[in-house]
Write a protein that binds this DNA or RNA. Structure first.
Length: 492
RNA sequence: GGCGCGGUACCCAAGUGGUAAGGGAGAGGUCUGCAAAACCUUUAUACGUCGGUUCGAUUCCGACCCGCGCCUCCA
């Protein structure tokens, strides 16, 4: 069965096949590094990560490039205000973005920084001018002439045929031939940062960087281009226009767009007070694994309502999966096999759910059903030794996509705690975060020693002593379970 | 105004032309020295409202109400 994906360009779900051999060449619009990434940004990046991971799991090789926009109007403005160079200003937020991505177990694509490719962008613009698709204005800026590109609007399904010229001309863009013409290259205004180039001093327009860098890394026509839904217009529409004007070839086969999320049922905005960065949530004590699972739990084309209640639910889900994995790994089971089909059927269900336009909700339903059935088998003594490995493998298969099983929340939260201290944000640190991090102060050896003491007390039927040790470990953030196979523990 | 998406139980959320996945939460129970974990039972005569097509619609069509997105370099 092949992967079926919604393609914004055709407006339909289509079978996805790479253009060349077995390699998928994909480009994802990355962050503009002028501030910390918020939870909406990361919904998109997690969606792309899931796509990437599933393509890999399916057996494709993936060449995945993502841009870092480290020059734009906002950056120039903010860095000037901060009294920093553009480079120094963006470096901080680029680093934060990469850290946050890794906190969410987002696999890192090949990165392409806009400021490392200024030369190519200038050449791109010069070439467009030569072909008559671009014109220079008096101040030295360059614009794309959309009247020369008849299929303009094909991605966003907009009809510009009857568009009035100059209907809404911005004050500082009075030189454009048509209000819809967009900037390819911006001449510097006094005091602004700029780059020297063959087409004169200035800085690239926003859209040109993605066209120039994606074609540079992936070729003139490649498989898939991803981003948030807001980028459909104008950003991706403009990329298509520039790129296809330059090459005369189709730019991208599949356009993949992730839907925006809501926060507590409302559009996220700073003024509504529901604007959260990833770090804000961590400071409140929410674990990265729960955040990732929530972001991944609703299929990417659906609006996701991001709530704190949902976050708590997802934390329970993560616990349930990790508990189950631990139960399988530590349990003693009689030899033989009782049920050879549960694991394989689950894998099949997950795969076909993901093949169906990445239906992550159904994939999760499949794994939870497996967990319940297997738990029943364990409870009833029906679980056999040979059934364990396939079930663990099915969990791993799930985790190759969702990446929430590994118990690595505590060190990540510790890093965020340290960041908060360095940034003077101690007042935002919650009790929950401190507790999560507190587990770190106990080494495995410490814990094992305490567990041993607890077991000894239990054998002596000194329950008061054993309960005291257990209470201590529990309050340090451990899950401690007494089972017939002995005491089992893990960090929560 | 133009184009597009969605409204499913207490909450989150799949899905189908023939009568509703999964998770969380609540209640009761099993197990247990007590816990924890796990499991069982239970919680939508019903899928925004009103019409239509159909033997039959939550699923198709139309209207309306509500939420959301793009049309302004916000993922």
């Amino acid at each position: 069965m092949a992967l079926r994906l919604y393609n914004t360009l055709s407006g339909k779900i289509e079978e996805f096949h790479p253009l060349q051999n077995n390699e998928v060449r994909m480009y994802a619009c990355g962050p503009t590094v002028y501030d910390y990434g918020h939870i909406g940004n990361f919904r998109t990046f997690v969606a792309v990560d899931i796509l990437r991971r599933f393509l890999l799991q399916t057996g494709f090789r993936v060449r995945h490039v993502m841009n870092i926009t480290d020059v734009d109007d906002k950056i120039i403005r903010n860095s000037a205000q901060a009294g920093l160079s553009v480079k120094a200003y963006t470096a901080k937020y680029e680093k934060a973005f990469l850290e946050d991505s890794s906190t969410l177990n987002i696999e890192q694509p090949l990165l392409a920084r806009a400021t490392d490719h200024i030369e190519e962008m200038a050449r791109f613009v010069a070439e467009l001018e030569k072909k008559g698709f671009a014109y220079r204005t008096e101040d030295g800026s360059y614009y794309f002439r959309i009247a020369k590109f008849p299929s303009y609007g094909k991605l966003s399904k907009k009809d510009f045929a009857g568009m009035e010229d100059g209907a809404r001309v911005d004050v500082d863009e009075y030189e454009k031939d048509n209000a819809r013409d967009f900037a390819l290259w911006k001449a510097p205004k006094p005091g602004e940062a700029f780059w020297e180039s063959p087409i004169g001093p200035g800085r690239p327009g926003w859209h040109i960087e993605c066209s120039a860098m994606s074609m540079h890394e992936l070729g003139e026509t490649f498989d898939l281009h991803a981003g948030g839904e807001d980028l459909i217009f104008p950003h991706h529409e403009n990329e298509i226009a520039q790129s296809e004007a330059l090459t005369g070839k189709p730019f991208v086969h599949f356009w993949f767009h992730a839907r925006f999320l809501l926060v507590e049922g409302e559009k996220m905005s700073k003024s509504a007070g529901n604007f959260f960065t990833l770090r804000d949530l961590a400071l409140r004590g929410y674990k990265p694994s729960a955040i990732r699972l929530l972001l991944a739990s609703v299929p990417y084309r659906h609006q996701l309502n991001f709530t704190f209640d949902g976050l708590k639910q997802m934390a329970s889900n993560v616990e349930k999966l990790r508990n189950f994995q631990l139960r399988l790994k530590t349990g003693q089971f009689p030899s033989g096999s009782a049920d050879s089909k549960l694991a394989s059927e689950t894998v099949e269900r997950m795969t076909s759910a993901l093949n169906d336009d990445l239906n992550t909700a159904q994939a999760q339903a499949a794994i939870f059903e497996m967990v319940r059935k297997a738990n029943v088998a364990i409870d009833n003594g029906q679980m056999k030794k040979d059934d364990v490995a396939p079930l663990l493998a099915a969990l791993e298969k799930f985790d190759e996509i969702f990446a929430v099983l590994r118990d690595d929340d505590a060190p990540k939260m510790k890093a965020i705690l340290e960041w908060a201290k360095a940034e003077g944000r101690e007042k935002d640190v919650s009790q929950e975060l401190l507790e999560s991090v507190g587990v770190q102060s106990l080494s495995d050896a410490d814990i094992e020693a305490k567990i041993a003491a607890m077991e000894a007390a239990r054998r002596a039927r000194n329950f008061q002593a054993s309960d005291a040790i257990r209470a201590e470990l529990t309050s340090a953030g451990l899950l401690v379970e007494i089972t017939k196979d002995g005491v089992r523990w893990r960090r929560k």
